[in-house]
Nucleic acid binder design. Structure first.
Lengths: 223, 223
DNA sequence: AAGATTAAAATATCATATATTATTGTCAGG
DNA sequence: CCTGACAATAATATATGATATTTTAATCTT
């Protein structure tokens, strides 16, 4: 039997999504099928299936009969994404604090520890593992809300987080020590089951990250 | 040139989605490609693209290498959907009341009027146009939040509304006069720009609809 | 009746073919 | 030099058939 239970479809999906989030496929650029076929080594059918999935998730646009394009970025979209992520993540955090058991606490402590180690390395100037760092960031935020007991909520949040991440990667700004302090504070408030404080900190965390991202870019307001 | 700008892909997408929401395709049932091919008169490629879209929206499940299934229903899922719809719709309603202009008010009045007419007919016992009635219900709720100025939010809400609608159709219970009063009350509060009241009424509206739906079913708790 | 083996069905993927639609380039007329 | 009509080209949407792999069903054995 095979090592991976991955199908060609699912791996291409992951690759393309990753390339969109991390900017290898630039916002607004045309996704020509021939090009993709060569680049991802998959058949036309498989690629179209993949692109359809990404389209309905909002990472790709597909104007009728004109093929596929990487979803463009805009200030308005960033604002919407940030606000929605705040709404969903704060809500989920409240539920998670309410429902979380010892197992949840354990995973959270572990996730924060991993993230914290990586943050130290980033601070020290080691920029070589940005992608891994972002994954730990992802995992930390996920660990906080993991106990919310709503698969639907976690799924929506995951997509929003990825969309937000794309904007972060676009400007690749590291808020360094500030973000580290924010992560620690959220972590503490969450473990202390102080829902109101944890939610306020999370809101501020996302908001200030967004403002920081916004300040680092210079797009026009139109597409 | 053609009347419709619809492609085969988009029409099959709509048809299948509609059949899932309105129960023509039963929850949990296998979606055999040959069967679909015949039923929707589309090619395998097109069908797979469609099913991939519906999978990422959560109307279809696609366990690796075992084909496609209509997403099963469960009490837990209904609860999650109802809560998420409440969260997003109340949030959007607040924004919409804040931003809405005269144009928005006009559309809202129209939508409520259309819905109200249909509600009278349903009350009178005319059950022949359930689907149209539900569309007007949809349009009314959409009209309320239309001015929220967030495409992402509207898009998430639309999907959640459809998922919630599937549960409603599953038991096809009409809360009759109660729902009419609730709609009218929400409408009034919204036009009066009374955000707090409008949100409270909306929350109660969704919650009581959900309880009503829940009370009408007798699924086990497991998938 | 449980487990193993084989046969049949269905899926995932690919390669091609065709019709339709978009895009580009050319050229005449102003 | 610009504009619009028209042809040429490229790309997409859709369909079909083929193959390898995997599931599922059926059969046999103990």
């Amino acid at each position: 039997m095979n090592d991976t239970n991955q199908t060609v479809g699912s791996t291409t999906y992951q690759k393309i999504k990753r390339d969109i989030i991390f900017g290898a496929l630039r916002p607004g650029s045309k996704l020509k099928l021939d090009m993709l076929k060569e680049r991802y080594d998959a058949s036309l059918s498989t690629l179209r299936e993949t692109l359809n999935r990404l389209t309905s998730e909002g990472f790709v646009e597909a104007p009728a009969q004109r093929g596929f394009f990487v979803k463009p970025v805009s200030v308005e979209d960033l604002e919407e994404i940030a606000n929605l992520r705040t709404l969903l993540e704060c809500h989920a955090l409240g539920l998670s604090i309410q429902n979380g058991d010892a197992e949840w606490e354990g995973q959270l402590v572990a996730a924060h520890h991993k993230l914290h180690l990586m943050e130290q390395r980033m601070l020290a100037g080691d920029e070589s593992q940005v992608e891994l760092w972002k994954r730990y960031d992802w995992e930390f935020h996920l660990a906080m809300i993991q106990a919310c007991k709503s698969k639907n909520l976690l799924s929506l949040h995951a997509t929003l987080f990825d969309k937000y991440l794309r904007y972060q990667m676009l400007v690749l700004t590291n808020r360094g020590e500030v973000a580290i302090r924010e992560h620690k504070a959220m972590f503490d408030a969450t473990l202390a089951r102080d829902t109101a404080t944890a939610q306020r900190l999370l809101d501020e965390h996302i908001r200030s990250g967004w403002q920081h991202t916004l300040a680092s870019v210079s797009w026009g307001t139109s597409g």
